[in-house]
Design a binder for these strands. Structure first.
Lengths: 140, 140
DNA sequence: CTAGGACCTCTAGCCACTAGAGGATCAAGG
DNA sequence: CCTTGATCCTCTAGTGGCTAGAGGTCCTAG
């Protein structure tokens, strides 16, 4: 377990420059180096980085992850905070899903109603203009 | 209808600096100015900006919007292109909805299973660590 | 011992804004 | 007419979360 950065990258699915970036912003702490100044990582880093990757995949922002990592570092603490971070995130996700679903509906309708004729009959433009008229007639 | 930029902002929900930014990147064309060099907008700009805002909310990228606007500007053209932009986008939306729904499930489970106790028992941290152990034990 | 892959640092770029400095203009009230 | 203060102007720099590239060093297998 004396992994160079490329191996850490392979094991976690996080790209090499991203790992260095995480170190730079303090999400990962600076690992020991070889005599030749190359980073060497151990199991804790693999786990921490997996935690980070998974959190990012779930859409948590770096600041959230920072907090979650701090919490994880103090196991005797209460997890109310983690809970509230996750709950807030969930609300946000619900909001996004709702608006994407609305979008889906509109896009589907748009595509279906597109008669492959002229733009003025094309609902794509109309729908996105957010009103009943053809947007190309906006000059009068 | 000789709206200063703040009024355009109020009517479209797009922030003032963002309107100027859109002008800068050529998404909005430069409007006439007063003698004192202030921008004055008319109804076409309100509509165009609404179109842009709505498109952005629907997740279209600026380049997509640029294309759609160009199409809207030439109503004699076929809307095949708009159709294909929308279709591509639809695929992407479906992908996003699917992944957000999966995420939603995971987050919900996380939040529900959080025992509101100590971090070491907290499912949120555990799930994010992506393995069975308590992440706080990574150091030993 | 050498070749070439992996590593290093540093800077700059990406998207779509957002913030702030430092100053000019506009419209309403006195 | 003049002041006041809200709005406007331009310009530069910062945001988040990376990604790309230059130019150089190190490590390891043959």
């Amino acid at each position: 377990m004396n992994l160079p950065i490329g191996e850490l990258s392979r094991r976690t699915g996080v790209k090499v420059p991203t790992i260095r970036f995480y170190e730079q912003i303090g999400l990962l702490s600076a690992p020991p180096r070889t005599e030749g100044n190359q980073r060497r990582y151990g199991k804790p880093e693999v786990e921490r980085l997996n935690f980070i990757r998974h959190s990012r995949e779930l859409g948590f922002e770096v600041e959230d992850i920072r907090e979650l990592l701090e919490m994880a570092a103090s196991p005797q603490a209460s997890c109310h905070q983690a809970d509230s971070i996750a709950r807030n995130h969930l609300t946000e996700i619900d909001r996004r899903i709702a608006s994407l679903s609305a979008l889906r509906g509109e896009l589907t309708r748009m595509v279906e109603e597109c008669g492959h004729g002229r733009i003025c009959d094309c609902r794509i433009i109309e729908v996105l203009a957010d009103h009943g008229e053809c947007v190309t007639e906006h000059a009068h």
